[in-house]
Lab assay of single mutants.
Amino acid sequence: HMTFVALYDYVASGETDLSFKKGERLQIVNNTEGDWWLAHSLTTGRTGYISSNYVAPSD
């Protein structure tokens, strides 16, 4: 899985979204569905959809 880092804080707007904080590391589970990616937070252990605009590759 690809690992990304959050560029900004994000508060989930629905049950399927994932809230995260700036600097949080996220593993991308599925990024084939446009701008919203299914991600797993390595910080909180939660999984949900994130906006690809809010993250950048961590490598």
Rank of each mutant, 00 (worst) to 15 (best):
H1R: 11
H1E: 11
H1D: 11
H1S: 13
M2P: 11
M2S: 09
M2H: 10
T3Q: 09
T3K: 04
T3P: 04
T3C: 12
T3W: 14
F4D: 00
V5P: 00
V5Q: 04
V5L: 07
V5F: 07
A6N: 00
A6W: 02
L7K: 05
L7R: 06
L7T: 05
L7W: 04
Y8A: 09
Y8T: 08
Y8G: 06
D9I: 05
D9F: 05
Y10L: 04
Y10N: 05
Y10S: 05
Y10W: 06
V11Y: 09
V11Q: 11
V11W: 10
V11F: 10
A12P: 04
A12F: 03
A12I: 05
A12M: 03
A12C: 05
S13V: 14
G14M: 11
G14W: 11
G14R: 15
E15D: 12
E15S: 11
T16N: 14
T16F: 15
D17Q: 15
L18K: 00
S19H: 03
S19Q: 05
S19P: 04
F20M: 04
F20R: 00
K21A: 09
K21V: 10
K21Y: 07
K22M: 07
K22I: 06
K22A: 11
K22N: 02
K22G: 02
K22Y: 04
G23K: 01
G23T: 01
E24T: 02
E24L: 02
E24R: 01
E24C: 03
E24V: 02
R25P: 07
R25H: 12
R25Q: 12
L26A: 00
L26Q: 00
L26T: 01
L26M: 08
Q27M: 14
Q27W: 14
V29N: 04
N30D: 13
N30T: 10
N30P: 06
N30Y: 10
N30W: 10
N30S: 13
N31Y: 14
T32E: 09
T32G: 09
T32H: 09
T32I: 10
T32D: 10
T32L: 11
E33F: 11
E33K: 11
E33S: 12
G34N: 08
G34K: 11
D35K: 10
D35Y: 09
W36H: 09
W37R: 02
W37N: 01
W37Y: 05
L38G: 00
L38K: 03
H40K: 15
H40T: 15
H40I: 15
S41Y: 08
L42K: 04
L42Y: 06
T43M: 07
T43S: 11
T43G: 05
T43H: 08
T44Q: 04
T44G: 01
G45M: 05
G45L: 05
G45V: 02
G45A: 03
G45Y: 04
R46M: 11
R46Q: 11
T47M: 09
T47G: 03
T47Y: 10
T47P: 01
T47D: 05
G48N: 00
G48K: 01
G48R: 01
S51Y: 15
S51T: 06
S51C: 15
S51R: 15
S52E: 05
S52D: 02
N53T: 12
N53R: 14
Y54G: 05
V55E: 02
V55I: 09
V55C: 06
V55H: 03
A56R: 11
A56G: 10
A56Y: 09
P57D: 06
P57Y: 10
P57H: 09
S58L: 15
S58H: 12
S58F: 15
S58G: 10
D59V: 13
D59P: 13
